[in-house]
C-alpha cells in the first residue's frame, strides 16, 4: 500500500488523536495500516507512538518490537532507548535492559535516563540489580547522578 506523504501525515494525526482519546484499539488499527507504507519506516515518531499505544494495550511484546526498531533506526533517540529499556524490564530481561541503557549512555548524555539511573542506585540499596552495580555506578558518576 502506497499513499502520499500528506495522506500518511493525516492518517498518523488521526491515530494520535484516537490515542489521546484513549481509543487505543482504533489507534493501533490505523497505525498497523500505516506500517505497510514506506513513510512509516523512516518516521521515528511513528515507531514511538506505536510502541506507546501497544504499551497502553498491555501488549509489551509488540511494544518492544516498535522501540527496538526505533532504537536501531535512530540510535540517538533517548526516548526510543528508554522505551526499549523498559520493555526489556517488563519482559524480565534485566541484562538486555542494562545493555541498552549502556549502549545509549556510552555515546550520549543522560536526560530522561537520569531518573532511571537514580532508580537503579536505589535498587542497589535494597539489594536488587546487584549484578549491574559497577556498570551503573560508573554511568551514574559520569552523568552526575547521586541518590
Amino acid at each position: 500500500m502506497e499513499i502520499s506523504k500528506n495522506e500518511y501525515s493525516n492518517e498518523f494525526k488521526k491515530a494520535v488523536k484516537m490515542r489521546d482519546n484513549s481509543k487505543f484499539a482504533h489507534s493501533i488499527a490505523i497505525l498497523e495500516d500505516l506500517a505497510k507504507t514506506s513513510w512509516a519506516s523512516k518516521d521515528l515518531n511513528f515507531h514511538l507512538v506505536s510502541g506507546g499505544v501497544y504499551r497502553s494495550l498491555n501488549d509489551h511484546v509488540q511494544a518492544l518490537k516498535c522501540f527496538k526498531k526505533a532504537s536501531i533506526l535512530f540510535p540517538e533517540s533517548e526516548l526510543a532507548s528508554l522505551g526499549l529499556y523498559l520493555s526489556y524490564v517488563k519482559a524480565d530481561k534485566s541484562e538486555k535492559a542494562i545493555s541498552e541503557l549502556k549502549r545509549y549512555l556510552d555515546k550520549y548524555p543522560a536526560k530522561l535516563y537520569k531518573d532511571t539511573l537514580a532508580e537503579l542506585l536505589d535498587d542497589f540499596n535494597s539489594g536488587y540489580a546487584t549484578n549491574f552495580k559497577n556498570t551503573v555506578l560508573s554511568l551514574a558518576k559520569r552523568n552526575k547522578v547521586v541518590l
Binding site: W39, F46, G83, S94, F132
Partner: peptide
C-alpha cells in the same frame, strides 16, 4: 531476584509523558 531491576516507576512516568507529547510524524 538479586539480579532483577525493580524500580521503574519514574522511568515509566517519563516515557509516558514524553510519548504523549508526540503529536505528529517526525519525517513525513
Amino acid at each position: 531476584e538479586q539480579n532483577k531491576i525493580r524500580s521503574i516507576d519514574k522511568s515509566e512516568q517519563n516515557l509516558q509523558t514524553e510519548l504523549n507529547r508526540l503529536k505528529g510524524s517526525s519525517r513525513a
